[in-house]
Simulated scan of single mutants.
Amino acid sequence: MKTEADMSSTPRMDEPLREKIMTQPDVILDDKELMRALIAANERAMGGNIVDLRGIAMDRLETRLDRLEDTHRSVIAAAYENLAGTNIIHRAILRMLDPVEFECFLRDLGGDVAEILRVDSVRLILESAQNDNDPSVQRMGDVLSVAEVGFIDRYLADSRSGPGRIVTLRQLSDADARVHGERAAFLRSEACIRLDLGKDRLPGMLVLGAEDPHQFTPQQGTDLLTFFGGVFERAMRRWLS
């Protein structure tokens, strides 16, 4: 047992610092590195033959807290990313609904809408039972393409998505020029959106292409693009009516 003389010989902490700690103990409790140092000093004082169960429990709790904080940051980052994606889709839809003529609608699709969506190519594929030599189709060849019946099913046949899936995301090594035109050689990923253009009409497909191979991958969610496709096909029904 320490005598009064032993206690008086123990070096005293700087008085202003000691007073600050006494009045604001949270300063120490909130400092992880300082708390580790104090716990380590306590373990050394107890000696090597004593198992500090409280210290072990604190270490485990600290590890769990670190994992929880990492998860919390990941959830927040995902929420911000989803919010940003939602805003982009909403802006693209509003711009898509502005035109009052079909040719302007298609021109904006390959221009302002593509820029808002941050993609390098936007192509609309319509199936037709006959070769369509309509002048408007020829004029909009950089956005609009007419394909034979069954082309869309064949084009998506090698994808991993199940049959009837609305949105297909995949990476490309050799993009199809029949779909992407002159930009095919530069594209490394695409989003294909099936379009239901109404009763007794052949299907269509909206294809977004990107030079970034990671912009569209099968692991990503498709809710926003499904919503975008739903609005787009309703706009197309209006133009085709």
Rank of each mutant, 00 (worst) to 15 (best):
M58K: 10
D153C: 03
I76W: 03
L83M: 08
P135M: 12
S145M: 11
F151A: 12
D132E: 15
R154I: 00
N82P: 00
R165L: 07
H72E: 15
E62T: 15
R60G: 06
G164M: 06
L68P: 00
N133Q: 06
E62S: 15
T63F: 15
A84Y: 03
Q130P: 03
A57S: 10
R54I: 05
D142T: 13
R64Y: 14
D158Q: 08
R165K: 15
M46C: 10
R123L: 02
T168G: 01
A114N: 11
D108H: 09
R60L: 02
H90N: 09
S121A: 15
L169Q: 14
R154W: 02
A84T: 03
T63N: 06
V113M: 02
E69N: 08
R183F: 07
N49R: 10
P135R: 09
R54H: 12
G48S: 12
N131E: 11
I56N: 06
E182S: 15
V143H: 04
L187Y: 05
V119K: 01
I166S: 04
Q138H: 14
E81R: 08
L83V: 06
E148P: 05
G111N: 12
G150K: 00
E103S: 14
E81F: 08
R64A: 10
V149R: 14
V167R: 03
D52T: 10
I116C: 04
I89C: 03
I152M: 11
A57P: 01
A175D: 00
L68D: 03
D108W: 09
M96T: 10
A177R: 10
V119F: 02
D52Q: 01
A129F: 11
R64D: 05
D112G: 10
A77K: 15
V146Y: 12
N49P: 00
Q138F: 13
R118W: 02
A185F: 07
N82D: 14
I76T: 11
E127T: 06
G162M: 11
A175R: 00
D174C: 03
I76Q: 13
